[in-house]
Design a protein around this nucleic acid. Structure first.
Length: 112
DNA sequence: GCCTTGACGTTAG
DNA sequence: ACTAACGCCAAGG
């Protein structure tokens, strides 16, 4: 059965929804987990396009960062709500918009 | 249907 | 170690 882009988005949402509180992961890792190694940008695109109403549930998109642990998607959140949420969950920051990836990194495969 | 853009990542210089 | 360029694939103009 041919996986459509819609299914890909759906899978992205499902994976992101499983990220535990206080943990973070990256776009590339999610893409790789879904079998699309070079689809990191699409993950970001999926999150940008995601609609809680249509999806039926809401996902912690603020826990998805780039491979360096930087909050590259902060512009899509209200003010600094992305950083504030992470701090509130106990995530340690190494700089203004960079988290301690080594300490809080979450791998989708660990879930198995 | 071609061109540009982008919540990314890797490689080359 | 730092910066520039390219590859990637879907969406919108």
């Amino acid at each position: 059965m041919k996986p459509s882009t819609k299914d890909f988005y759906q899978r992205v949402y499902e994976v992101v929804a499983k990220i535990p509180e206080g943990k973070v992961t990256s776009y590339g890792v999610i893409a790789g987990y879904l079998g699309v190694e070079s689809g990191a940008r699409m993950v970001g695109y999926a999150l940008n396009n995601y609609d809680p109403e249509q999806l039926g549930y809401h996902i912690p998109a603020h826990r998805v960062l780039n491979r360096l642990g930087q909050l590259t998607g902060r512009a899509f959140f209200e003010d600094d709500s992305m950083r504030e949420r992470l701090e509130q969950e106990g995530v340690e920051f190494t700089s203004e918009y960079t988290v301690n990836f080594n300490k809080h990194f979450w791998n989708p495969f660990d879930e198995l």
